[in-house]
């Protein structure tokens, strides 16, 4: 048995998936948001829903720079779960429904275990978690279009981006059949982005092309000072966009939308 265990561990290669999002390339088209919803069986929002009660595992923020109107520039920031290496949501969950998967680095949200206390939502600084406020309802016939690789969620539980786990499972199956150890896949957002602004990679693999991207000077992350160690990287060569990273930057940026 011990020998078997050793052997299994050897073949269970570990990953640390992360993503790099090029904000200079992003046009804010929203294809990623749509692809994400379709991939993850997000039920169509009922009429009474607003942007604060709907499920958008991925959303694109429109941020304007502080300059006055004629010179005002805009950037679109796609935001989803940052897959933190030290997730603030994980240790607050009272019943172990959140787990940082040591094999993939993905922060798993176990909707089957979740009882909807929403403590993790309060704890997440990126507001990347969503609660199912309503019973999911698919118009007649639309349930046929559901992605069989992703279970639909019931009302009253918290969900979030799990880096298209269904696609990961499929890649795993493929690799197992091929006898390969190399699990590569594209999440729906990355695949659907017409500007190819979203790229996924294995942060653990020194030969992965993502390493070069991370080392670029224009790469930054949001709210690193909180110590959550996010695995989502953003890129921009524009100074004011980079300064969005922290709330109180030394230059004193103020991006409140008072107007």
């Amino acid at each position: 048995m011990a020998a078997g265990a050793k052997e299994m561990n050897k073949t269970n290669r570990k990953y640390r998936y992360g993503m790099v999002i090029d904000l200079d390339a992003c046009t804010g088209c929203g294809a990623c948001v749509v692809a994400c919803a379709v991939e993850n069986n997000v039920a169509p929002a009922p009429a009474k829903v607003n942007d604060r009660t709907s499920i958008t595992l991925m959303r694109v923020f429109q941020v304007k720079d502080p300059a006055p109107m004629p010179a005002r520039k805009t950037v679109f920031v796609p935001m989803m779960c940052m897959q933190c290496d030290d997730p603030p949501c994980e240790h607050v969950c009272p019943q172990q429904a959140v787990e940082l998967d040591p094999r993939t680095g993905i922060v798993d949200q176990m909707v089957q275990r979740c009882f909807g206390c929403r403590y993790c939502m309060a704890a997440c600084p990126y507001h990347a978690r969503y609660f199912n406020w309503f019973d999911p309802e698919w118009p007649a016939g639309m349930e046929q279009t559901l992605n069989p690789a992703v279970a639909p969620r019931m009302r009253g539980v918290v969900e979030k981006c799990d880096l298209c786990h269904g696609r990961f499972h499929e890649a795993q199956d493929r690799a197992a059949l091929e006898g390969s150890d190399n699990i590569t896949y594209q999440p729906a957002c990355a695949e659907s982005c017409p500007a190819q602004a979203i790229r996924i990679g294995d942060l653990q693999n020194p030969e992965d092309p993502i390493q070069d991207q991370i080392r670029k000077p224009e790469t930054f992350q949001f709210l690193v000072k909180l110590g959550t160690k996010p695995k989502m990287f953003y890129q921009s060569r524009r100074g004011w966009v980079k300064r969005l990273a922290e709330r109180a930057s030394p230059n004193g940026n103020s991006n409140r939308r008072d107007a």
Partner: peptide, 15 residues
């Protein structure tokens, strides 16, 4: 809580 019937999970699988 969203799923009150699952409240006992906290006792069964406490973090």
């Amino acid at each position: 809580v969203g799923q009150p019937l699952r409240s006992w999970f906290t006792f069964w699988h406490p973090n």
